[in-house]
Every structure is written in C-alpha cells, then in structure tokens.
Design a protein around this nucleic acid. Sequence first.
RNA 1: GGACCAGUGGCCUAGUGGAUAUGGCAAUAGCCUCCUAAGCUAUAGGUCGGGGGUUCAAAUCCCCCCUGGUCCGCCA
Length: 565
Amino acid sequence: MGNILLKNLKEELKDSIKKVISSEGDLSIDIVFSKTPDLKLGDIATPLSFELAKKQKRSPFEIAENISENISLPNGVEKIEISGGYINFFFDRKFFSNATIEKIVSEYELYGKGNKKNEKVMVEYSQPNTHKSFHIGHLRNVCLGDALANIMEFSGYQTIRANYIGDVGAHVAKCIWGYMKFYSGFIPEGNKGDFLGKVYSEADNKLKKSEIYDEEYREVLKKLYEEEKQTMKVWEMTREWSLEEFKRIYKELGIEFDIFFYESEVKDKGTKVAFELLEKGIAKNKEGAIVVDLIDHNLDEFVILRNDGTALYSTKDIALAERKFKDFKIDRSLYVVGSEQKFYFKQLFKTLEIMGFSQAKKCYHLSYELVMLEEGKMSSREGNVVLYSDLKKFVNKEAIKQVRERNISNAQEISEIVTIGALKYSMMKDNNKKIIFNWKRALDFEGDTAPYIQYAHARAAGILNKAECVKGKFQIDELSEKEYKLVFILSEFPEIVEKASIDYRPDYLSNYTYDVAKCFNEFYHECRVLNAKTNRDFRISLVRATKIVLNNSLMLLGISAPEEM
RNA sequence: GGACCAGUGGCCUAGUGGAUAUGGCAAUAGCCUCCUAAGCUAUAGGUCGGGGGUUCAAAUCCCCCCUGGUCCGCCA
C-alpha cells in the first residue's frame, strides 16, 4: 500500500527533470507524463519541452536535448529518447516487470488499495419507491452506487452505504387506493413487489378517468397523512411487500447496505427543520409556503415546505442531510441520482451551506442519464417498463443455455454469476450517458461485456490450477511485447482506482478491467505458459498477478470472478 | 425564453490540451491433434454535428449555429 511502483518512478523522474531545468531558473512548470502511443517509443513520455520552448523562446528540440544530456536517470529508468520533441523514457523492463509482479502477488487483495483517509463518506443510492415496480432504471442506479461505494472504500475512506426508500407520497396513496378498491384482501402468490407495480399503474390510469375515483383517492391520501388505523394497516402490509422484493433483489445482486433510511421517518423532522430555518431568517414565508431565497446564487427560490404544511422532497432531504452530518458524523456525502435532478441538488447543497454545514462543500451529486427504451422513456405510471425481474430472467435463461454447451461442473452457480455480471457491467460501462436498452445487446456475452472479463479470469485460474508448485521467484529472459504490455497495464491499477475515487467515475474501472482482460487474452494466445520454452516461472507469476488484478477490479464493480466457466 | 448535458466509421463506445483517434457489435477471410473458441489474427469501414477562433499542438479550450435529451413544479 502507498508505495506505488509506477507512480514512484514518475515522481523520481519529475525530480530528476526539475534538477536539470531548475539550473535554468524555471521551476514553475508542472511536469505531466502520458503513456506513449506505442511501447516501441518508450514507456512514458512528457511533452514538457513544448511548454518550456514557449517560455524560454528556444526550440523544443534543443530543450529536450539539454534535458536528455544532463539528466541523471533514477533507478529503473534505462534510457531516454527524443522523438518529435517529446521526451520518452524507457524503463528497465525486466526490473520493472519483476518488481511489479512481485508486488502484486505479495499484496494480493490489497494491491491497489489506497492509504487510509481520515474521512468518513456516505454514499446514498438505490432510492426506490415502494408500491412501484423495480425496473432497469433502478438497476442502473444501484449498480453505479455500489461500485462508487466500493471504490471509495478501497481508496481508503471509511464508507457508509445508505439506501433511502420512498415509502410515502402520492404514488403510495394511489397504489393503496387501487389495492383497496380492486384487490382488497388479495394476497398475491408470486412476486408481490411486481404485483404492486401493476396495481399502481392500473390505479393511476383509472384515476385519470373518473372524478369519483379521484375523490376516493384523496380520501386515502388524507387518511395516510392522518395515520388512520385501517389504512395504515394496508400501508404497512403492502410496504412490506415492496421491501421484501427490494431486499430479494439486493441479495440477488450481492449488494448490502449499512443503513436504510425511509422517507416516512424523516418527514416530521423535516417539517420542524423548515420552521427552524424560518425562525433563523435563513428561510422566508412566501404565500404560506417556506422557501429559501437562492436568487443571488442564481438558483431561484427553493421551496422547503408546502403552504398546507406538508413535507416535500426537499423537506425530507434537508432533515436527512442534517442527520447524516450530525448523527453519522460524515465528512463527505455522495448522492447517486438521475441527472434530471441536477438543479435540485445544487439548490439543496447551497441551502446546506447556508445552514452552516462545512460538509456541504463535499457534497456531490453523481448524476447519470436515464435508461430508455427504443420507443422512448420508461414510465412506472404507464407501465411500459422493463422490469428488473424480467431482464434477470431472460439473461439468466441465455446464460444457462450457454453454460450447458460447455462442460462445467456447477452450471447453476456459474450461470448466475455470469447473469449478474453481465447485467451490472452493461449498466456501468458508459460514462453516465443515456442508455437505449436493447434486448439483443443485453443477451450478448461477447466482446466488451462482463462474461468476456470473467472468462479471462477463469482462464487464468485454469492455468494456475494446473501449475503444480509455484515458485515465488522467477528469472526473466527475454520479454515479449505481449508480456510487457500486460505487466504495464497491471502496474496502472492503483492509479486508476485513485483517479476513479477522485473523479467519482466507476466507469474508469469498467474500461480498465476490460483492457486488462483484452491484454491477457492476447498474451494467452501468443505465449504458452505451462509448457513454455522460456520465462515459465515468470509467466506463471504474471498469470497470477493478472488474476489478482482482474479479481480486485471486478470486486470494485461488484462483479464475481468465477474460477471456471 | 433561460440554463445544463450529449453529438466520434452502419450501430454502440474510449479519449476533455499532446504523437498515426480507443475498443466493441455487425461484415468479410482465417485459427481448436496446442494451458477453456464466452477466445485470437487479418481485412474493410472516420468531414470526431457544422462554421469561425485561441495555441507550437484541438475530438478536447472560446464564440456562433444545427440536432437530441433534461431542468427551470408547493412532483420525486
């Protein structure tokens, strides 16, 4: 931990370069390294000479020459070359490979782990509404959020995974009205959560068409607000149905939360806070409602309580944030929520700042675009959604079919691992952009998919199983390009994790993991391992290191790495 | 009307100041007597939405325009 080989080499190189250029009095420049487009050109490069050329009014070539002639290269860097003005550095590749692979193998599951940060972070994600169906849009959220939490934790933050369930509000009342009106006393045998989703959609449809129905619904809404006994009983029962289904899904996905918050438990506190803010003069009364004036911040007015005194989304979120800061003592608060709420979160964070919470500056809204159907937006109301349960069922069917074509001992378990992996990966590999859902692609297990990566892992496992006693020590004769390319990408893992945590970008990990799998497959086809003529011990260790990195990065994505498939 | 996000080969996508623009799907041609063919190799496919500008260097930054999405609710 902490001592990252590739990163260290970069730091040492920076120092060496600075020593050369400082003799000419130029220290202010920030030295950056990039990968070379081709390993033939070197391992890492810097375009520093272009920047210096401008400042010093000399030719970049001359500057590069000067650096190249006067630099004392750190241990592990073998050669320096100038190419088109770039300064390219060549590592001592045997040394680098040796050190990298030994490090990975010895650190094992800790390889890539960041230093402990003295900071507590809470990630809030998967905020499903009870009494509505759980569809693939919710799936995207929970996958992203879980990966983010994993990454933060692995990067060294103390991390709390929070779920915030919407169990009150108009949609609940609609569903309960529909249930009492058309299904009173009925207890579905199968998936109770999906049943409620259908009841909700059906109720919403009928309510649009009848004023009498609408009156009845308002009555239910009122009774829920007043916590009338009979209605509350139905609420409790149906709420539990939804929660059971959610928990079943989380279990299936292998996702665990540290804490569940419910809207029902923060709404009263929120109302209190709204009045407190009013008293303190942070908020003001506007036509009976309570609003925070954010016009000077270019954020309009933020309504935090309705004029009838009932709670809004904002009412509850302010109370919940306060609870997170005060009771859980968190320093950093992350929210994984769809991008349509961007403006809302700006208002919320600004309000928290005005309320005096220093953590407000470390609040972050990880936003992502919706999962859409080819024909357009999904809507629980309309009922035109792809349910999570259906998607899982069909993907699993395909996985079972494919596993059966192979000779595998525990087909059931493997098909489940492939199914969940494929689902999660497809929801995370894009940079939070709009996803147009497509069945053909969802059932694809080749190319840039989780099964491709899992397969690479299983292959590595297969080799290691057959390699009798494995020596920890190895000698490297001649490094082939495929071998070294693989070593190099493995060495990048810690930096990728760090960047993903800084930028809050789980997709960095998805892309990286796929690249590792691809490199490994190329290596696999070109280099024999078990009956290798050269580098046998090294290759076995390289395979082991690859398996470790694949396993660690899949773990961050919440995807299982099978030993066989 | 104002604000934000996106636009990269037929389709999807990486890359947000550095070298010849990354991969996948689909297509074509190959590779299993050899550690798992959910794999590999090769071929073909590009006005990086358009136009200006800044820069030694632009898919990336600035301005204008086009297209799509979202927000500007006492909804969530």
